[in-house]
Design a protein around this nucleic acid. Structure first.
Length: 889
DNA sequence: TCGATCACG
DNA sequence: ACGTACGTGATCGAC
């Protein structure tokens, strides 16, 4: 059975280029688009197992589409030279792959593909079209599937005619009509001005085609009728431009050239070596270069260490000697929650050997010297996720200290948006010998199984050896990116502080929760039966599907928003529906109560440690793209506070020693202070220097009134504007938040920028900077890459722009409180205070404090927090205390 | 396993 | 014209 894969070469190369971070080989040749393209090819070859394969390219500058419309593709930006230079390289690489490539002067890639899919239809063979361009959907048929890239090139989404119909309610052919009506800015196809996707779809659902819409303009109304009538010709022409030409002169016999018979390993290896795609050479198990070949071929494909399994019979002397010369250690745990995880064993590298100990060995007699080494502060340890290891070791009664480098933490700083931080991935990324995935060794989910001692030892050894090779590379990269200081002076010390807080835990009084739970239970039952009465039936209120049916079908309330799966019933929608039916208010309250019950009462009770009576959260330092921490098992960063009913949960959080207090200190407006600092806006700085109420001050400036004229509503609006500024403002977002029109929201924003010119300057600048460098940074040089800032897709690009504005602000605030935590920990130690730091909630630190230290801490904590980093805007922290977290307000 | 919802900063 | 606010985690129901 034949299977063809037809790739739109230009489209995929573009996508890959903008999706990948800048990448060059040592000769300075840009390779990121080629790299992304290659990854996609490998994935396709593996998953699709094609018999025929083709990459089509656009040829020449002028295509037949320019005849009659010279502006075709006019508005498009020039291809960046960093990408242009990659096309010849890509074409050469395709030859090494043995993949056919066509280009035909006067035609675009999609015309070639269109013609070939027509042949596929006629011959009744399966074909897959791969592109980033939605236009291709017009080619879908029973035999032709369209695979569109998503999120750069890493994911693809397949469409057959049925799926197109499901998504747009159109046949593949009508995709052309869609574009005829709405146009396409990226190709400079005009369409009808004022008609976007929504309107175009509506018209097509009613009339079926552009021609039919134009023939029925009488049934349109007002402005729309006018627009359509004046732009009739544009629509016709746009449709013509959007139509893929499927009669390109390609001879029948040419198709045989598409046959794909696999690649020649040594030829492909040569190409990869030139490009320095070391990880791909490894991944495909390609041959190394012969003698005298390029330098990077000197890296051995196979690890060359000797594996030593340390068992009961192992010589204590030899082990002690080996421990004296450790380079790296890998400590294996199983389970997501480090406070409950299994300890599987460890491996360490020492000279050319790797020593591996199973759990039994590590915890048995023979492991004693290793345990002593782990506990030795002065024995430096380079490893992977040692923060988690420390916690798991702790609950197994093994002390740990002395981290000198952590590969996972470094990987996070080097690219905080990358979600795959496994050693298997990092080894691939850096081109060091492959590390097997945990899934392949342990299985996953219910199938998880600890393998035989030898298999486990080999796996751990592979990881320890991988660490040894990764560390110098990461070290160099931290230097190069200016993040060494951030790493060694902030993140690594912080990881130790966090582990201390997590081991300490915070006491939770179960009685408070149980009582609250009973009260909630009664109320929930009451609401439930009320809701059933109003609905006239019993149903699962917790099911958005059933709830949607009751509200919008049975009770006939007006449906506002839709989600992918059906009606939206979120709080914003329900609040709008409140006036229509009494049931809505009940449902809103019911939701609130069940949330409290399941997540905070029952959820929290489950997390109380039987032995300590405390909850021990796990702060994750390598998750949030902005540099913030995250908290899990349980999440103690989202305990209710905004609503009084939920706030009562905080009464359960109490000191762990009798007579002590809970003390909480939070930064006042830290993000806006940071904004004042990094934008240098004089007016904003002044507001903080004078310690004014920032929202009132904003209201005064934006509305141009005196302080005593600012009413509650003005302050509320100013507050929303301030939030918007921090998030990377858009009129749409603000209008949504304030429930006002978009025009009005835009006016607020304009007025804000008029007053706070420095902030406007910052917003413009940071976006330009992100476009130029491909990343943004915080005050402490924390970096976040934003490849999508150059996307042609409006949504992706806008999102990246807002992120560029927000990340330096949120990230710098995160830097600051992290600094404060490290300093606070030092200070408590130096002063010999018994008070303990327990929690961090983004801009707040929570302590438990003995009576006799209360006065000290009340001044010390805000002092340390405010002094964490010297800015030209003052930082300020407010402090409160009480017998529980609720009272510390 | 994923999407919807909602808790926090 | 386009269509969203930034960053997280836990729970539930549906598939």
């Amino acid at each position: 059975m034949e299977k063809w894969i037809l790739i739109d070469g230009n489209s995929i190369a573009y996508r890959a280029f903008f999706a990948m971070p800048p990448l060059t080989n040592s000769a300075g040749l840009h390779t990121n688009a080629v790299y992304g393209f290659t990854n996609m090819l490998l994935k396709l070859l593996e998953e699709e197992k094609p018999t025929h394969m083709l990459v089509a390219f656009d040829a020449g500058k002028v295509t037949f589409r320019h005849e009659g419309y010279e502006d075709y593709k006019g508005g498009r930006q020039k291809t960046p030279p960093e990408l242009s230079e990659q096309f010849p390289v890509l074409k050469e690489l395709l030859q090494s792959f043995g993949i056919a490539q066509f280009e035909l002067s006067g035609y675009e890639a999609d015309d070639i593909i269109g013609t070939l899919t027509k042949m596929a239809d006629e011959k009744q063979v399966q074909a897959v079209v791969v592109s980033g361009d939605k236009d291709m959907l017009q080619l879908a048929s029973d035999h032709v599937t369209i695979a569109l890239t998503r999120k750069g090139v890493s994911e693809i989404e397949r469409y057959n005619p049925a799926e197109i119909h499901e998504k747009y309610g159109l046949t593949p052919n009508q995709i052309i009509d869609l574009k005829g009506l709405m146009g396409d800015t990226s190709d400079n196809i005009p369409g009808i001005p004022g008609v976007g996707e929504k309107t175009a779809l509506k018209m097509l659902h009613e009339f079926g085609s552009v021609e039919n819409v134009l023939a029925n303009t009488d049934s349109l109304k007002g402005k729309m009728k006018e627009k359509v009538e004046t732009h009739k010709e544009d629509a016709i022409m746009s449709k013509k431009l959007a139509t893929i030409f499927r009669e390109v002169p390609i001879e029948e016999g040419k198709v045989d050239e598409l046959a794909y018979n696999g690649y020649d390993k040594s030829q492909l290896a040569d190409s990869f070596r030139k490009l320095e795609f070391k990880s791909l050479i490894e991944r495909l198990d390609l041959p190394e270069a012969g003698a005298g070949a390029t330098r990077e071929a000197a890296v051995p494909a196979e690890a060359n260490y000797e594996l030593v399994i340390v068992d009961d019979a192992f010589s204590a002397d030899e082990l002690t000697e080996a421990l004296a010369g450790v380079d790296c250690v890998y400590i294996e745990t199983a389970g997501d929650n480090p406070h409950q995880a299994q300890l599987l064993g460890l491996a360490f590298t020492s000279s050319e050997k790797v020593y591996s100990l199973s759990y039994e060995a590590l915890t048995g007699t023979v492991g004693a010297p290793v345990r002593a080494w782990l506990a030795d502060e002065d024995a430096p340890k380079q490893g992977y996720d040692l923060h988690k290891a420390e916690l798991t070791l702790f609950w197994h009664g093994i002390e740990y200290r002395g981290t000198s480098f952590d590969v996972m933490l470094a990987a996070y700083l080097l690219d905080p948006t990358n979600t795959d931080q496994t050693l298997a991935f990092l080894a691939g990324k850096y081109g060091v010998p492959a590390v097997a995935s945990d899934e392949s060794v342990y299985g996953k989910g219910a199938k998880f199984k600890v393998p035989d001692v030898e298999v486990l030892a080999r796996h751990l050894a592979q990881k320890a050896d991988g660490l040894k090779r990764l560390i110098p590379l990461q070290y160099e990269e931290l230097e190069r990116t200016g993040m060494s200081k951030l790493y060694f002076e902030l993140e690594q010390p912080l990881s130790v502080v966090l582990a201390g807080m997590e081991k300490q835990g915070i006491k939770v009084n179960p009685d408070v929760l149980v009582d609250l739970g009973k009260e909630l239970e009664t109320n929930i039952e009451r609401y439930k039966s009320d809701i059933y009465t109003h609905a006239g039936m019993e149903f699962n209120i917790g099911s958005p599907k059933q709830l949607g049916e009751v509200l919008f079908e049975k009770l006939g309330l007006p449906a506002k928003k839709k989600t992918k799966t059906g009606y939206s019933t979120d709080a914003a929608v329900l609040e709008e529906l409140e006036p229509y039916h009494e049931i809505v208010r009940l449902i809103l309250h019911y939701r609130q109560l069940t949330k409290l019950q399941s997540t905070y009462v029952e959820g929290l009770l489950k997390e109380i440690n039987k032995d300590t009576g405390k909850v021990h959260t796990y702060y994750r330092q390598t998750i949030a793209a902005t540099g913030r921490l995250s908290s899990q098992f349980p999440n103690l960063q989202n305990i209710p506070i905004r609503m009084e009913e939920g706030r009562r949960i905080r009464k359960a959080f109490v000191p762990s020693e009798p007579g002590w207090y809970i003390l909480a200190a939070d930064y006042s407006q830290i993000e806006l202070r940071v904004l004042a600092q990094i934008s240098g806006d004089e007016r904003l700085k002044e507001a903080f220097i004078e310690d004014m109420d920032i929202h009132t001050k904003t209201a005064m400036d934006v509305f141009g009134v005196e302080a005593d004229q600012v009413d509650a509503n003005m302050r509320r609006q100013a507050k929303a504007v301030n939030f918007g500024i921090v998030y990377g403002i858009s009129d749409f977002g603000l209008s949504n938040n304030l429930g006002i029109g978009r025009k009005e929201a835009a006016r607020f924003i304009e007025q804000y920028f008029e007053v706070f010119q420095g902030v406007r300057g910052y917003m413009d600048n940071i976006v330009m900077q992100a476009r130029r460098d491909g990343y943004v940074t915080t005050l402490l040089e924390r970096r976040r890459y934003l490849p999508e800032i150059k996307a042609s897709n409006f949504n992706l690009r806008s999102f990246a722009e807002r992120t560029a504005m927000n990340t330096p602000i949120q990230g710098t605030a995160a830097d600051i409180i992290k600094l404060a935590m490290v300093k606070m920990d030092e200070t408590l130690r130096e002063r010999g205070l018994k008070s303990r730091m327990l929690l961090q909630v983004h801009d707040e630190l929570v302590f438990e404090v003995p009576d006799d230290e209360l006065e000290t801490m009340k001044t010390l904590v805000p002092e340390v927090m405010a002094g964490a980093l010297q800015l030209n805007v003052p930082l300020k922290a407010d402090v409160n205390f009480g017998v529980d977290w609720y009272e510390a307000k």
